[in-house]
């Protein structure tokens, strides 16, 4: 039987709802759901003073759902602003995976009429991720994370960007916060209290208040969500545990992730830059470091020795 779907919560709207927002309980149709997501992202961008007139905003575009949605929303909400958006895709050099996602990235940038550049690990680090994984003992995602951040920074700096936007959503941020706590990584918590210490281009995360489910749903209704192959390097074990655990808690106690982040942001602001948590410049490359050689130089130096 086709059950009653009811109506959208927006006054006067007779369209069927496609989603119930967990925060407010609102039941929204496609049009009002889209508007709600865009409105919350706009509030994050404006409230956080993330973008100023005249800025060049680099947008990390992996071709996956979150960054694709980010680029789509930014290109909409910044449409009338004197801001130049440049999408930046990093080719890590992962055989059998990256080709397809780069193709997806190119096509979404073209559809949105956004400038797009592709930069590779090979150009900037002299090696593909696949090669590095064979040379280094650490988890592929650790190597990839360190180098991707640097490659994005360098590319954003080269185009004169004032901001580097990434597609991290509420779930990603909550997972990282909880992982730092579970790892007892007080240094990282204190360091990220001054988020852009030492970096060339300050980062912004316009989707940080949007749950991953809503990001995905937005992608589906805007017809920009295409399921792509998963990265062959399985993610960090702790993150996938934390992900499952947090979504169970979020299901049982709606708002868990939002409350966690509100508290975590306050904590970080208080402890930001505490003794010993500052950043210095790497003596080799001048990039940000927590003391001595930066992790990029350390990784590449170690790979070169093997």
């Amino acid at each position: 039987m086709a059950g009653e779907t009811g109506r959208c919560s927006c006054p006067g709207c007779t369209e069927p709802p496609i989603a119930v927002l967990r925060g407010s309980g609102e039941r929204l149709c496609t049009r009002h759901f889209t508007a709600s997501v865009e409105c919350r992202v706009r509030e994050t961008v404006e409230g956080g003073g993330m973008v100023r007139d005249g800025d060049i905003v680099a947008v990390g575009l992996s071709g996956g759902k979150d960054s694709t949605v980010l680029l789509h929303i930014l290109s909409r909400i910044l449409l009338d602003c004197p801001v130049r958006i440049v999408a930046v895709t990093v080719d890590e050099g992962i055989a059998g995976y990256r080709k397809e996602t780069i193709r997806a990235a190119r096509s979404i940038a073209a559809v949105l009429g956004v400038e797009h550049i592709v930069v590779s690990f090979e150009e900037l680090c002299g090696r593909t991720l696949d090669a590095l994984v064979g040379e280094l003992p650490m988890h592929p995602c650790t190597i990839c994370g360190v180098l991707r951040r640097r490659v994005l920074q360098t590319a954003a700096g080269n185009i004169g960007a004032a901001r580097l936007a990434t597609g991290h959503c509420l779930d990603d941020e909550a997972q990282s916060a909880l992982m730092n706590v579970l790892n007892g990584d007080l240094g990282r918590i204190a360091r990220t209290g001054i988020p852009d210490a030492g970096v060339l281009v300050p980062r912004i995360k316009p989707l940080r208040s949007i749950p991953e489910k809503e990001v995905t749903l937005y992608g589906i209704v805007q017809e920009i969500y295409t399921p792509l192959p998963e990265c062959p390097y399985a993610g960090e074990a702790l993150r996938s545990d934390v992900r499952g655990f947090l979504s169970t808690l979020e299901y049982r106690r709606a708002g868990t992730m939002t409350r966690l982040m509100a508290g975590y942001d306050r904590l970080r602001a208080r402890v930001g830059g505490c003794a010993g948590a500052g950043r210095v410049s790497c003596p080799e490359c001048g990039g940000p470091s927590t003391g001595g050689r930066c992790r990029v130089c350390e990784l590449l130096g170690q790979a070169g020795r093997r």
Binding site: M1, P16, I18, V20, K65, T216, L217, I220, V221, P227
Partner: peptide, 27 residues
């Protein structure tokens, strides 16, 4: 359901056909 996105509180049953999309992480 039958091709249309529906919220979780929707009543379903009988001859309905549901499609469940589990989204992959990342991106």
């Amino acid at each position: 359901r039958n091709g249309a996105l529906i919220p979780e509180d929707t009543m379903v049953g009988g001859a309905d056909e549901l499609r469940v999309v589990r989204f992959v992480h990342g991106g």
